[in-house]
Design a protein around this nucleic acid. Structure first.
Lengths: 233, 233
DNA sequence: CGTGCAGTTGAGCAAATTCAACGCTTGTGG
DNA sequence: CCACAAGCGTTGAATTTGCTCAACTGCACG
């Protein structure tokens, strides 16, 4: 499946970026410098639903930022099981790798617009601009924390995993208590290391406990956040 | 429990380090520049067995390198369960954190000598010396890969987890097929997200399959590595 | 009105945990 | 030197948890 591409790359040399950057106000939050660079130097690509953005073992040339839509990264194990590495929503950056090749694949969950920036370009910028280097570092640090959180999740019970997932998604949702899920039950199951049946049953159970409401299968409303937090271990 | 301290800090200004570094041959492997810095600027501390090196929620001021002995990092969950973040053997660096506070605690498994270096010092060095910055980055990258590996491990079956653990330890052991374990069954269980009983039973099973030998509880010999690799998924 | 897909529900099963007992080693005190 | 307690590891039986397999529902689409 080939993505419908719509490239608007700004052809600016690194030095020009650095100068332009210098005229902007000092960084007020982490990632600002990287954001500047991506917007100035990145190319926007439009992908249809369920399109592959990159595959396991392809060279990791780019860094990606979600503009709209949602993305999943995943890995297929030798026995056919699939482990989902993470879900990325608008504003999130993915594709951070340290090997020369991607260890995960990435696919869109929905139609999506993705901003791409060459890693080589960013590395070159980081060599001259310490703000960008710092942002890159912070980015990786946050990714590390995210993965460590998830490690803790994976030793918990099925119910705790589902609850953690709901709270995590709620924290990133606009309202904070009504979640619109861009992914299927199978995706959630592969993210949590459970089966779809267990996820489904757990949600039903949470609903009958009055902790959540599930008006449609892709929308979940948190009713009793205190109860959920208690279940979260 | 207070560590027996034996500080031998070399008091050298960053600029001096950078100069000294410049006279050395160009980096031949990742981490060399950081190693240089740690050895030049670090302080060695001696800890007895089961001593706390730092605690969860303490400010993360230092980076640590194991000189001798072994270390575990861990987190106590609210319900009393303990998750082990990792085991660190001589040559390993731990204490990498991105928040200002440690999210894990660290303890010695055995008597140990640890080299400490102030994060602030290293950050300052990294700001001037791109080789150090690159090493730091690579270090974090490898830590991220390590954690991602472990995430994959935690969705596997008990047997696969134990086998993965054995292969991981064997890869770091000197001979490569005879493992001297510095940690207890409880530590292994908490590392793998299993119970001690399951770990014990699995080892017994592997031994009766002739895949391993367990001459003493802390020593494990890999007999049939091919079979183990096959079990590893 | 069927067909196909996603999600739910139920019954039976396998895997891992819990609880309990036991063996081995180590260290301590009589 | 022996007796004994404590800690660690192993083993067994019962129980729980989550998985597998299968049927069923609701919904979108032709």
């Amino acid at each position: 499946m080939q993505p419908q591409t719509a490239i608007h790359a700004a052809m600016i040399r690194p030095a020009a970026i650095a100068m332009r950057r210098a005229t902007l106000p000092a960084g007020e939050f982490e990632g600002e410098s990287i954001d500047q660079s991506i917007y100035l130097m990145g190319a926007t690509m439009s992908y249809p639903r369920h399109a592959e953005i990159y595959g396991q073992d392809e060279p990791a040339e780019y860094l990606y930022k979600v503009v709209s839509g949602a993305v999943r990264t995943y890995k297929i194990l030798s026995d056919g099981r699939r482990q989902i590495g993470g879900f990325y929503l608008p504003g999130d950056i993915f594709g951070l790798e340290f090997a020369d090749e991607h260890s995960l694949s990435a696919e869109t969950l929905t139609d999506a617009k993705i901003l791409l920036i060459k890693r080589a370009t960013l590395n070159a910028l980081a060599g001259h601009n310490t703000a960008i280097a710092r942002d890159l570092f912070a980015l990786v640090g946050r990714e590390l924390q995210r993965v460590q959180e998830r490690m803790l999740l994976l030793i918990k019970s099925a119910q705790e995993r589902v609850v953690s997932f709901l709270l995590e998604m709620a924290a990133r949702a606009p309202g904070g208590h009504c979640i619109e899920l861009p992914m299927s039950r199978q995706d959630i199951a592969d993210y949590l290391g459970l089966t779809i049946e267990t996820v489904s049953r757990t949600l039903t159970c949470l609903e009958s406990c009055a902790a959540i409401e599930v008006p449609t299968s892709r929308r979940i409303v948190l009713r009793d956040r205190a109860a959920l937090s208690r279940m979260n271990g």
